[in-house]
């Protein structure tokens, strides 16, 4: 068969424009699309006020901050707080705990919504599917305080359902939330229960975007549902999975702060105290704002480096990236 006349797709190439041309184009564009920019304005203002302006205060991580002298007039002390941080056993423990909890979250919490979405996709009965989806979405809308209350009650040594069931099998009651070795499994499990359902929405949307004729073609070829899931659905939603993974890696240092505060206690600090709770205790409870700012800055820099690293890796190996 002839191939000579087939058109080859050519990469689109835009001619380079001068700075003047680009400025003119931008001003024309803004003049034409001012309504869209107007709608964008509240978000930009929100970013400036709540995310960029506070960055001014980051400098206290390098200062001997005094609330009486203010940010500008407090004296510079260089890397002193960071040196103190890295010689602080509690901080190092918090960093280690953050990484361990995040790793567990990534290992078990990240695949959970993907598996749920794949399972929902296989449910053929529309009514049953809707009911199941609603049930797994619900915990997301419950406040962390209530979630913590449910967890505390469920694992209570006296009235908790977990200990009651263990009792039926002849086990002694365990006060799980005071046992450091149980904190991480309980915390990660709670996170999955609360967020896996809601997190599955984005993957369900990605699955909905898969061309139905791919499945029909596979059916005619003789593929089973299991084969279609592995060979069509999963590869088709891989770009979404990668994007979500990059975002997740970027948030690796941001362990669910409220839930830890609500669930941990001095007896479980050993495994439960993370950088954010450390910053909270040092900054707000002990008044060491500069020291806490240094810890927070360290957290942010690590997160930034991680997200850059994940994005670069993803772009190189899967051609999918955030930017």
């Amino acid at each position: 068969m002839s191939t000579a006349t087939d058109k080859q797709p050519l990469p689109a190439r835009r001619p380079k424009r001068s700075l003047k041309d680009r400025t003119t184009w931008l001003s024309d564009h803004i003049r034409n699309e001012w309504r869209l920019y107007l709608m964008l304005l509240p978000t930009i203002i929100w970013f400036i006020v709540f995310l960029y302006k506070p960055m001014y205060g980051l400098q206290i991580a390098f200062k001997d901050y005094s609330i009486f002298k203010g940010v500008a007039k407090s004296p510079w002390i260089g890397w002193e707080h960071f040196q103190a941080l890295f010689s602080n056993d509690q901080f190092l423990r918090a960093v280690s705990n953050t990484i361990k909890i995040s790793a567990l979250n990534l290992l078990f919490g990240f695949p959970a919504p993907i598996i749920l979405a794949l399972m929902f996709n296989e449910v053929l009965h529309a009514g049953y599917k809707r009911a199941a989806q609603t049930i797994v979405y619900l915990p997301h809308f419950i406040s962390s305080v209530i979630i913590a209350g449910i967890v505390i009650t469920a694992f209570s040594p006296s009235v908790g359902i977990v200990n009651t069931v263990l009792g039926w099998f002849g086990f002694d009651s365990v006060y799980f939330l005071t046992k450091p070795e149980w904190f991480r499994p309980i915390f990660v499990g709670t996170g999955i229960w609360q967020e896996a359902g809601f997190g599955s929405i984005v993957f369900l949307a990605a699955i909905a975007g898969v061309n139905p004729s791919l499945y029909e073609s596979a059916v005619v070829d003789g593929a089973s549902r299991w084969q279609m899931m592995w060979k069509i659905t999963l590869p088709s939603i891989l770009p979404t999975i990668i994007i979500m993974l990059i975002i997740r890696i970027g948030n690796i240092m941001e362990v669910s702060f409220e839930l830890i505060i609500l669930l941990y206690q001095p007896a479980t600090y050993e495994t439960a105290d993370v950088v954010n709770t450390f910053v909270f205790r040092q900054g707000l409870q002990s008044g060491q704002y500069d020291f806490a700012a240094a810890a927070g800055l360290f957290n942010a820099v690590v997160a930034f480096v991680l997200v850059m690293f994940a994005n670069t890796l993803s772009r190189r190996y899967s051609r999918t990236s955030l930017w």
Binding site: N211, S213, L214, S217, V219, V220, D221, G222, P235, S236
Partner: peptide, 20 residues
């Protein structure tokens, strides 16, 4: 079942697997 009919189908939008 379609797989046991021994038919093959060519679709309008080609139905090619983009990742393969």
């Amino acid at each position: 079942a379609p797989k046991d009919r021994d038919v093959a189908m060519v679709f309008q939008n080609y139905a090619l697997y983009p990742h393969l």
